[in-house]
Design a protein around this nucleic acid. Structure first.
Ligand SMILES: [Zn+2]
Ligand SMILES: [Zn+2]
Ligand SMILES: [Zn+2]
Ligand SMILES: [Zn+2]
Lengths: 390, 390
DNA sequence: AAGAGTCCAGGGTCCATGCCC
DNA sequence: TGGGCATGGACCCTGGACTCT
């Protein structure tokens, strides 16, 4: 069943810019009741501004999609933002990942198309997945003829370009596993005229052999530079955001920094405001390691929470628009929105790492499969951390 | 800005089955804390069952979409369901419609144009007759290229959506018989600097060399029966649901029915349970008029609320699985889930009516534009109604 | 606004090629 | 050696979304 919040996120295949923008929008979204009048206005303005930027971004970067799908994507993104903004705690449930493992092709934003069946070079999508011509034809013929092949190797054949014709049973199995949809195969059609034999065209006059077309086709309409003016504005907003993102994510404290004592949590029960203004007392800024190569322990989860808090504080303190708020509003916002912010961080790391679970920023991950988890309950962990910053 | 819950719904372009299923899932979704142990189990089972049916339905009816978009749709649908299930009140905000007006083409599921050639759904007239996009394109191409097809079946092929591509000779013949006018086909426009070398299509001579194509192909692979078994099961679930839907929506009380006194609200402060078990005391079952041709007054809104409640009660009382619950659980569920149910009804009516606002079931609608609204605030209205059923 | 034409992803067809009996 | 047939790259055709008049 597809229920976790992580699922729509994964299906959307968000890029980095979208992640950043959605996080920002979430920070300043809705539910302004607790802010001052002025804070409310600023908040709404910032939100609306970044929503415009995001919608723009989607339209530009998905311009190959039909309009309807873009609309669908925009709606879904908005729905996701508001769902996540409303999160009061992270629970095992709402960070839960899909039951289906990550398709290997996602997460890498490569533009080279690879056949999902045999890894040959592919030209486009066929029967629902990116696939090569060979696998396309093979699948259609198999479905039409209702072939039931038999493997002579116990069904364990690997399928690759070089030997994809060795075992039809396994090739067809791979096709289905990779997601080819038998329902997308249509009926046989009418026959075409023979090649070269143009008799079905009602015979054109021979004088028509002018062929005044010496390759006048310029490949220049590849740039869809329809848009300008406001675009510069929008590009700049994105650039600023990404650079802030990069700065905060790569910020590292010198190992022997004076304000840093030890990587441990000497700092229980610091007032929130102190921690927020000087986050390195919570934990030093260690480099982020998004690999998800080992299973997280309870300490990993706690430590990641601290590191994420430092990122949060650094990020907000550097975010230009945040400076517009009065001090009290700043604190209210900062307290209120850490959980959604952290959710976005985890979501992004998880996609980056491509591991089968929720990735933390110290190389560990919380496995999707309960039996492997060393962390009793995410929610408890989070609440414990929240208390730490009374 | 795209923020109202109605937007994603509109972008998804849900069909009737999806509406029904989503409503059912919402009824039995999450938040089971207040039910008895047994009620919780039933509820979860029903929900999961209908989620399976819904996912199945989406996969079947959107099988032309790429896999990733289907996944996206499924996720979005789930997100929508849970968002709407959480609604505690209808407010002007969460039933708010998009700022962009409805495209004229949507919402007219009512007129239902049929292609005169192949009986597919049609959008408008082409070349003189109501026809689908496929037949439009086919006719234009055939005329341009002066194609002379040859039927391999003695010219007796039936033309229908599913196999209209099997015999082009008969399809073209049907086009002409149905009244498509070759003279309505204009010349190719050439402005858009074509990239390809379409120059091969020059003027043709009148001599018609009919192509002879003594092919013996069997038109027999029309069956691609890979799938069955579970499909029947699923089809049946959908059929039952739609028939219930239809029954409830068309149920009308005889004008002079005894239990009915007057269309007014004599019935303030009836206990919920009484109203639920005998809904016609709330308001008689008037026919539903989903046209949205006049602006709603406060009375319209109130009356619609009552009518919707009657639909809700009728529907739940007839829904087979609802009978599995204990009496107390029934009441809890029924009280808890009217708002989301009503939301779905309004959403569906609005799409059906295609008016620029929220459609009620008595021919009126709440305009999108504030200045036109006669209803002060939807939320207040709803709350007032809720109190009526203390 | 209606109804022409345009575009193009992704269906299907064709057939040179090669494998197998 | 020849006929049967699967393969896959080149190409044709379809129809939904769109633009243009
Ligand atoms: Zn392949
Ligand atoms: Zn095999
Ligand atoms: Zn048609
Ligand atoms: Zn025919």
């Amino acid at each position: 069943m597809v229920r976790g919040l992580a699922d729509p996120m994964r299906n959307l295949n968000l890029d980095e810019t979208e992640f950043c923008l959605m996080r920002v929008i979430g920070l300043f979204d809705e539910d302004f009741g607790y802010l001052s009048e002025q804070g409310r206005n600023s908040s709404r303005q910032i939100r609306d501004y970044y929503i415009r930027v995001l919608i723009r971004h989607i339209h530009v970067f998905r311009s190959h999609m039909p309009e309807a799908e873009i609309g669908c994507r925009v709606s879904m993104v908005m729905l996701l933002i508001s769902s996540i903004t409303k999160l009061q705690h992270l629970t095992n449930d709402n960070i839960r990942l899909s039951e289906t493992p990550i398709p290997a092709s996602m997460g890498k934003y490569s533009y080279q198309l690879i056949c999902g069946v045999c890894s040959d070079q592919a030209t486009s999508r066929h029967y629902g997945i990116v696939s090569c011509n060979g696998c396309k034809g093979f699948f259609r013929r198999s479905i039409w003829n209702e072939r039931a092949y038999k493997c002579r190797n116990g069904g364990a054949c690997k399928i690759a370009k070089e030997h994809r014709n060795v075992c039809r049973a396994c090739r067809l199995r791979r096709c289905l596993e990779a997601g080819m949809n038998p329902r997308a195969v249509q009926n046989e059609r009418d026959h075409n005229a023979k090649r070269g034999d143009m008799s079905s065209r009602k015979e054109m006059s021979p004088s028509a052999a002018v062929q005044t077309d010496p390759l006048s086709c310029s490949p220049s309409h590849l740039t869809k530079s329809h848009l300008s003016g406001a675009d510069a504005y929008y590009d700049e907003a994105v650039a600023i955001l990404l650079s802030l993102e990069h700065r905060v994510m790569t910020r590292v404290d010198a190992p022997g920094s004076s304000s840093v004592t030890s990587p441990a949590h000497i700092s229980s029960h610091v007032p929130f405001i102190t921690a927020f203004n000087n986050p390195s007392i919570v934990t030093p800024r260690t480099p982020l390691v998004i690999t998800g190569i080992r299973i997280a322990t309870v300490d990993d989860a706690l430590q990641d929470w601290r590191r994420a808090f430092v990122i949060y504080a650094d990020w907000l303190n550097e975010f230009p628009e945040f400076k517009l708020f009065e001090h009290s509003d700043k604190m209210i916002l900062a307290k209120k929105r850490f959980i959604p912010f952290y959710w976005w961080l985890l979501a992004y790391w998880t996609v980056q790492a491509g591991c089968d679970g929720v990735a933390y920023a110290n190389g560990s991950y919380l496995p999707r499969i309960k039996e492997l988890q060393c962390v009793p309950d995410v929610r408890q962990t989070c609440e414990r951390m929240m208390k730490e910053l009374a």
